[in-house]
């Protein structure tokens, strides 16, 4: 239920932004999920739904998956992360702390663990839509 903690962050960030922008209602929240973290979409959707505040009672949660792209700093190789061949324990470690990728993954070309996660690492609040106060 690590998704629960992330959902809590999304709800709380959306609430702060809505307050800053004086929205009286949030109609849509778009969340970007990097594949590296292997978030369970159903659990995240459930957690978001459970933590809805009155401000977002009718809001639609849109979840966008971003493929995880890795680039080796040593040889420049680029590749896409795939959780398929990882065992359960490794998958779970990367799920909780995506940087554990550097512990368990290696560049497929040169074998280095010194790669960067170009995109698709974590969970981001991409945008919120809503109705302005008095609008």
């Amino acid at each position: 239920m690590h998704e629960w903690a992330l959902a809590e962050g999304v709800v709380s960030t959306a609430t702060r932004i809505a307050e800053e922008q004086e929205l009286k209602e949030i109609t849509e929240i778009t969340v970007r999920i990097g594949e590296l973290q292997q978030i369970d979409r159903e659990i995240l959707e459930f957690a978001l739904d459970q933590q809805r505040t009155p401000l977002m009672r009718n809001a639609k949660f849109t979840l966008e998956s971003i493929p995880a792209k890795l680039r080796c700093r040593v040889c420049g190789e680029e590749w896409r992360f795939s959780p398929d061949d990882l065992g359960e324990e490794i998958s779970e470690a990367i799920h909780f702390v995506p940087e554990m990728a550097h512990v368990y993954l290696k560049c497929p070309r040169c074998g280095s663990p010194d790669f960067e996660v170009v995109e698709g690492r974590g969970v981001w609040l991409a945008s919120i839509k809503g109705v302005k106060d008095g609008g």
Binding site: G9, S12, L125
Partner: peptide, 12 residues
């Protein structure tokens, strides 16, 4: 884009 993690650290 906002990082939702930063919002909850204080709460933890």
């Amino acid at each position: 884009m906002a990082d939702p993690r930063l919002e909850v650290i204080g709460r933890r």
